[in-house]
Nucleic acid binder design. Structure first.
Lengths: 257, 257
DNA sequence: GAGTGGTCTAGACCACCGA
DNA sequence: CGGTGGTCTAGACCACTCA
């Protein structure tokens, strides 16, 4: 019905058509880990400039279908890893498989205006910040900055070595009865610091998850987690249902009807 | 010497430095909706090729800071809109402000192999697919394909007009006691069909949310939702906590210490 | 050193928008 | 119409990896 005639639409850009062609090739003729022909050969084979070919590869990389390694080549990416982000499974310190998180550093400093506003505390109030990295399948998948107002942890022992203080903060947080959490997810790019921890170049796409933790009706902590968008699929499972097979684009599912 | 000190780190790429400079300018000298100087002037002003400038703008657009409109110019983007994705708030048909969803079409067809596998049904089983569009603040923010095996809706009335059938499917689904849902979120790009519905060019970044709905321990529906990544921030709120002020990159928060 | 992807250039033409 | 962003080209040089 409402189908806008394909007739009136301008010819598809070359790079988009290329992407589609390459995607089909990836799905039918290549397997995970395999190396594509190099960019100069591909661009010659398709009769386009290298920049145009790269535009197509950029798209496929954003979709998580390709991984490009300097000095090596362009590889078929493995399917994205489903990463659970439930508090009681993996998202909260000390619970279950918490060894997946590695503490990077820990600072205790007055809240910046921005952070104070986000935490709902007065500017300059002391805030503990624990930064850690999440490893999944041997890879750094995410970095997280956990911000906790010192006032929320009344029984924190005195000064210690940085790593000990980090552990103390996490332990104290565990003891609080966290009774609510609110999350948001949006697209971002990795700045220099995160990029280094994630072993990716600056500007790499990431999924930024912001989690607010509440205890006794008050906000006690905020975590800003940065997940690699190329290899991660965040999973919010209440109960373990069937595992999700990638359905690809919904339009593809539909178009098969 | 051969030492790998920070000294030897390669100079930052021009486009990345440009991005940082422009980001600072955006935050300090411009306000939402304002138009940046055009690309040719900016590239001249910074002494780089237009392609290099565009690479910087691409990054900022991916971060949701800029919107580019052909024939108009490059505008400062409004902050991302927090879009609730709770079943009981907005994510489920018929509940509360469901008028935010507009039905596009509805098909009833045998399941493709891929869809059958995802739904956990036999291939070729009849499946209803309702496609709809979610509007927020007057804009199309997401498209969704809701797949429901016909067997899960035993009391569906006979043949009807397409829009009536769509409504029947949604109504029937409401009556089921949905007792669990499992979600996943990953990065994707809009294919032609979604792109048109979202009023964006093909290849635009999107957040793909896949939701499995269970009733009586069985999987009764799967929804594949495609949210505009440029303007959306998905919010998974259990309880209405404080609204999340964008914390920006976690590293920025830290670096202020 | 040979081969790879990453960056950058200078220029061209196109599709779209508003006056 | 003139101005905007979108696409595409042909070429150059660099940083990285591996043999």
């Amino acid at each position: 019905m409402g189908t806008t005639g394909q007739l009136s639409t301008v010819p598809e850009p070359k790079y988009w058509h290329l992407r589609t062609v390459l995607l089909r090739a990836i799905e039918t003729e290549f397997t995970t880990g395999q190396i594509l022909p190099n960019e100069r050969e591909l661009s010659a084979r398709f009769g386009v400039a290298r920049a145009t070919l790269r535009q197509a590869l950029d798209q496929l990389e954003l979709e998580g279908r390709l991984v490009r390694r300097r000095g090596i080549g362009t590889l078929i990416a493995a399917p994205r890893v489903g990463v659970p982000v439930n508090r009681h499974e993996e998202g909260w310190p000390g619970t279950a498989r918490s060894q997946a998180w590695r503490i990077v550093d820990c600072t205790t400093a007055p809240a910046t205006p921005q952070l104070a506003k986000t935490l709902g505390v007065a500017e300059g109030v002391t805030v503990h910040t624990v930064r850690r990295v999440r490893m999944v399948q041997g890879q750094n998948m995410a970095t997280e900055s956990l911000h906790v107002p010192a006032a929320a942890l009344p029984h924190l022992p005195g000064f210690r070595a940085e790593s000990d203080r980090a552990r103390s903060v996490l332990r104290q947080l565990e003891r609080l009865e966290v009774d609510g959490e609110s999350r948001s997810v949006e697209l971002g790019v990795a700045e220099a610091a995160e990029a280094a921890l994630l072993e990716r170049p600056p500007g790499s796409p990431v999924l930024v998850m912001t989690t607010q933790y509440a205890a006794a009706g008050r906000l006690v902590a905020i975590a800003v987690s940065t997940y690699r968008a190329d290899t991660c699929k965040l999973t919010f499972g209440e109960t373990g249902l069937v595992e999700v097979t990638p359905v690809a684009a919904s339009s593809e599912v539909r178009s098969a009807s």
